[in-house]
Design a binder for these strands. Sequence first.
DNA 1: ACGATGACAATGC
DNA 2: TGCATTGCCATCG
Length: 119
Amino acid sequence: MRPSDTIDSTREARRAAVIAVVRAIPPGVVLGYGEVARRAGLPRHARLVAKVLGTADDPSLPWHRVLRSDGRIALPAGSAGAREQARRLRAEGVDVVAGRVRQRPAVDTLDGALWAPAE
DNA sequence: ACGATGACAATGC
DNA sequence: TGCATTGCCATCG
């Protein structure tokens, strides 16, 4: 490996951390960007999470389970991505109405709370 | 180095 | 609920 890679890896490491967290989200569960950032050990990096998901090319990544903190789909309403996301969520049993999820992304729900520990 | 940008979040009205 | 404002922070030109 080139020495420059070791230094650049800070960026890669964060990206990897975010990817790992997103991949760990179980079906039917949704999290906010800020939450994901937290779980990735990067508090206040919600926007970075967005960037990562946007540039991630891994098709097996369940990026559709990441929403805004208010339960809204982050992608522009009507856009191909937004429709795709809503479609996938419903396929997992998540209620999506008008680009919004009928479930609190917050760790308010029992499922979310129980999911918190571990690792 | 500097300002603009963005799949964000919290707060206030 | 919706919209505007402010704060945050990595990226990019």
